[in-house]
């Protein structure tokens, strides 16, 4: 654990040596600073998911509409590249901080309690409900994401038959057909549903947690923040799931 913690602090150590950056790094590498960055990166990822879902729902409008949308996206060229790099950086930041804060938390208690009981009356899940499952659901999402990039971006999903998506030059450019090919492969559909289920749980704590971390807390509005967090979480998760079920029905 100690070795892992030291390893994780290497990037921050290097950055803290860069001239001009040191005070920023110092301010953001405390427990509170790291949580602020986690909240910002997490909410940015949620923002991406909303846009991505809006794009995906165009599958329901048929092959032409969806492929036109995909075409337009790819025609953005360098802008798309910059956006993808930013997105990748957000994921790296979010996951890096998740590992760093989790090891900080693990190091803060070396001897476990023999008996443990929540005072919040949460009997279904261990104390904190979804908040105790952030690491587990995060890892499931990570596995899903890795597969997702392999399947959709690189068109290299293991066991997927991409023939329907090939163009005259033998390249898999038909996005509509590629999505159908991946999702009609049952093991992939199962992985996607599991990943999206994990995402729903992750965000049902994550969104309201991020708002609290960013300081949004008022006794009149807390119920709204919490409800909006859970509703947004499951709207995103179920929205994506609907695409999976649609594809399963198509084949």
């Amino acid at each position: 654990m100690n070795a892992l913690l030291r390893l994780l602090s290497i990037p921050a150590l290097i950055m803290s040596r860069l001239p001009g950056l040191a005070p920023v790094i110092r301010a953001l590498s405390t427990s509170v600073g790291q949580k602020l960055l986690m909240a910002v990166s997490g909410l940015s990822l949620v923002g991406f998911l909303v846009v991505h879902l809006a794009g995906n729902l165009q599958l329901f409008a048929g092959e032409d509409v969806f492929n036109a949308y995909a075409e337009k996206l790819h025609s953005l060229g360098p802008i798309l590249g910059i956006a993808e790099t930013g997105l990748f950086a957000m994921f790296a930041l979010h996951i890096g901080l998740a590992l760093s804060t989790a090891s900080m938390n693990r190091l803060a208690r070396r001897t476990a309690y023999d008996v443990r009981e929540s005072k919040q009356g949460l009997s279904v899940l261990p104390s904190g409900g979804a908040s105790s499952w952030m690491m587990v659901t995060g890892c499931v999402i990570f596995v899903f994401l890795t597969s997702h990039i392999l399947d959709m971006k690189l068109k290299m999903g293991p066991g997927v038959d991409y023939t329907a998506a090939l163009d005259a030059a033998g390249e898999a450019t038909n996005s509509f057909a590629a999505v159908k090919a991946v999702l009609s492969h049952p093991p992939h559909a199962a992985l996607y549903l599991a990943g999206l289920f994990a995402l729903g749980i992750h965000l049902s704590h994550g969104i309201s947690s991020a708002l609290q971390t960013l300081g949004l807390n008022h006794r009149n509005w807390n119920w709204l923040f919490r409800t909006a967090g859970v509703v947004t979480a499951w709207t995103i998760a179920v929205g994506f799931m609907s695409v999976v079920f649609w594809a399963l029905n198509q084949s």
Binding site: S31, V32, Q34, K35, L36, T101, M104, N105, R106, L107, A108, R109, S118, K119, Q120, S127, G128, S131, S132, M134, H205, S208, S209, Q212, T213, L214, G215, L216, N217, H218, R219, N222
Partner: peptide, 28 residues
């Protein structure tokens, strides 16, 4: 060497003085 906050709110439930996690939002 204290841990960081995951907004689980177990502290608020355990606090004998019933200090609210709204203060953690203020700290942030």
């Amino acid at each position: 060497g204290f841990g960081s906050c995951t907004n689980t709110s177990e502290c608020e439930a355990a606090c004998p003085a019933e200090v609210s996690v709204s203060h953690i939002a203020r700290l942030n």
